[in-house]
Design a protein around this nucleic acid. Structure first.
Length: 286
DNA sequence: CGGTTACCCTGGATGC
DNA sequence: TGCATCCAGGGTAACC
């Protein structure tokens, strides 16, 4: 579920409950989520450790314990999330952090209905960073425009699948790819390597605008999916331009938003305005 | 190597 | 009501 804005919202919500506090115990309720570490090792590593920082790398949640106590990385993927709402077990709970020195909540839950999320442990922050750099590109909020130009020039896929490729840049998924491409007025099937520098610059600007707006709205919620750590819905979809708005008027031209499937993203819907985001830029209406 | 698809999972919504 | 099918915020192994 979560893309960069949802993960950023999780991390911001977790910080006051975790940073500087001691983990009395970590209980792993579902060891299927563990990636590269045993249940026993993870529980033992966390037990009694004080959390030094809670950060985000791309779509990863990173819990750093006090020096030399290691790092836990959680990838929520489609349906993972955290809840601070006390001792009552939520549905699909997979991890339980029982905290000391905590005023509001004593228990922090990680839940994941589809069990696609992953939990890893690294010896220190440097190892976690190395693992990140091996599998992910620069964070979408940190990448420079010039770097984005270089990276997009290397692939002949459509620009939407390229933006969603975490090795190109980390943090963008299906919702925000649609919003970024609308904001940049680019058709999702435009070949990434054929975009002009000016067009990639528009994408770079749109990424920052869209992701920051989504963070301010605390992410995107629909159906039974993503919630904040307090169990609240994120508000971004109320202000989305195209995503999940098929048949509704484009906010720029008033024409109907289309829902379609594009090559390279089978099984995932794409929403766009065919007038404002023409496949042939020469025919743009703006 | 670059690009695409199949598959991993589950639960809620939708359709017959 | 019951059952089948479809759908979903992600990622990766395997394939062409």
């Amino acid at each position: 579920m979560p893309e960069l804005p949802e993960v950023e919202t999780m991390v911001r919500g977790l910080r006051p409950a975790l940073v500087g506090r001691r983990v009395l115990s970590l209980e792993v309720l579902d060891d299927k989520l563990l990636d590269g570490c045993s249940l026993e090792d993870l529980e033992r590593q966390a037990q009694g450790g004080r959390i030094q920082s809670v950060t985000r790398k791309g779509k990863w949640v990173v819990l750093e314990f006090e020096p030399s106590r290691g790092v836990i990385v959680i990838q929520p993927r489609m349906t993972g999330g955290f809840l601070l709402l006390g001792p009552e077990q939520p549905r699909h709970a997979r991890l339980v952090f029982r905290m000391g020195d905590l005023e509001g909540a004593e228990v922090i839950w990680y839940y994941d209905s589809r069990r696609l999320g992953r939990v890893s442990w690294y010896g220190d922050m440097e190892q976690a960073q190395t693992a990140f750099d091996r599998s992910q590109g620069p964070d979408a909020l940190e990448i420079e425009a010039s770097e984005l130009v270089l990276r997009l020039r290397k692939t002949r896929r459509g620009i939407k699948p390229a933006l969603m490729d975490q090795k190109v840049l980390a943090g963008i998924g299906n919702i925000y790819a649609d919003e970024v491409l609308f904001q940049a007025r680019l058709h999702p099937e435009r070949i990434a390597a054929e975009l002009s520098e000016a067009e990639v610059q528009r994408i770079h600007t749109a990424i920052r605008q869209v992701l920051n707006a989504a963070i301010n709205a605390e992410g995107s919620s629909f159906d039974q999916g993503y919630r904040t750590v307090l169990g609240l819905e994120g508000g971004f979809l109320a202000q989305s331009a195209v995503h999940r708005r098929q048949g509704q008027p484009c906010p720029a031209c008033g024409g109907p938003i289309l829902k379609t499937r594009i090559p390279g993203l089978i099984g995932r819907p794409t929403y766009y305005c065919p007038v404002c985001q023409p496949i042939d830029p020469g025919s743009a209406s703006e």
